[in-house]
Simulated assay, not measured.
Amino acid sequence: MVRVYYYDNIPGDQRLPHDSGKPVSLSTLEEIGVSYWYVPVEGHESKIEQIAKEREYKNRDVINVTKEGLGELYESKIKMFFEEHLHEDEEIRYVLSGSGYFDVREQRSDAWIRVGVEPGDLLVLPAGIYHRFTLDETNAIRSMRLFKDEPKWIAHNRGVETDSNPYRVEYLRSIGVGA
């Protein structure tokens, strides 16, 4: 079962658990627009196809985030992934191997919620949600990325301009915050 909890905000290696000891329910994730499924990796094809069809995902690829896979870009990519940002598209990740953490902002408290992902976890972050990603101490994750259209990955780091991004505004409206 996926581990979801409030991030402790104690300085230190981002790849450590940073578990505050305060668990978060899957219903709390749903309230902020985050969807989660567990789909066993062995024999996952039909269930992933069903979800892709239902959610209109037309494209996919596989990303390997490892020191070997990213080479000299590894440290800069890990740092970039951990910057607080949003996307104008859903971010869909299905973990095939390895593990890591997605942190998502709980809008009402501005607290980080940490989601520890492992093989079989399928996480969908809505367009406009502030989030970040990091590996854990295993330093490796292999994930399928699904896309509604052509694959793209444009991060908009948090700031005054991003706070007024139409996708951010729509996200806030969708969870009942703002006008």
Rank of each mutant, 00 (worst) to 15 (best):
M1Q: 12
M1T: 11
R3W: 02
V4Q: 04
Y6K: 09
Y6E: 03
N9W: 06
N9G: 07
I10P: 01
I10C: 03
P11G: 06
G12E: 12
G12T: 14
Q14S: 02
R15P: 05
P17F: 13
H18S: 12
D19M: 08
D19G: 08
D19L: 08
S20P: 01
K22I: 12
P23E: 13
V24E: 00
V24S: 00
V24M: 04
S27A: 05
L29E: 04
E31W: 06
I32H: 07
S35M: 13
W37P: 01
V39G: 06
G43S: 06
H44G: 13
K47S: 12
K47D: 10
I48P: 00
I48L: 10
E49I: 10
E49G: 13
A52W: 01
R55M: 15
R55I: 03
Y57E: 03
K58V: 12
N59V: 09
N59D: 07
N59K: 10
R60V: 08
N64S: 15
T66H: 09
T66N: 07
E68F: 09
G69E: 06
G69T: 02
L70A: 08
L70T: 05
G71Y: 01
G71L: 04
E72L: 06
L73R: 09
Y74F: 15
E75K: 03
K77Y: 08
K79G: 03
F82W: 12
E83A: 09
E83F: 07
L86Q: 07
E90D: 15
E90T: 05
E91S: 08
I92E: 00
R93L: 03
Y94N: 10
Y94G: 13
V95G: 03
L96M: 13
S97Q: 14
G98D: 11
G98F: 14
S99P: 09
G100H: 00
G100N: 00
F102V: 02
D103R: 10
R105Q: 07
Q107T: 15
R108K: 14
R108W: 07
D110G: 02
A111N: 15
I113S: 00
G116T: 02
V117M: 11
V117P: 00
E118H: 14
G120T: 07
G120V: 07
D121Q: 04
L122V: 01
V124S: 12
P126T: 03
G128D: 01
G128S: 08
I129T: 09
Y130W: 06
T134H: 08
T134C: 15
L135D: 00
T138H: 06
N139K: 11
A140W: 01
I141C: 11
R142V: 07
S143G: 13
S143F: 10
M144H: 08
L146K: 02
L146V: 10
F147L: 10
K148C: 08
D149V: 02
E150N: 11
E150F: 13
K152R: 13
W153D: 07
I154C: 02
N157G: 13
R158H: 06
G159C: 11
G159M: 07
G159D: 12
V160D: 12
T162Q: 11
D163F: 12
S164H: 06
S164C: 04
P166Q: 11
Y167C: 08
R168I: 13
R168M: 11
R168N: 06
Y171E: 01
R173C: 03
S174L: 09
I175N: 01
G176T: 15
V177Q: 05
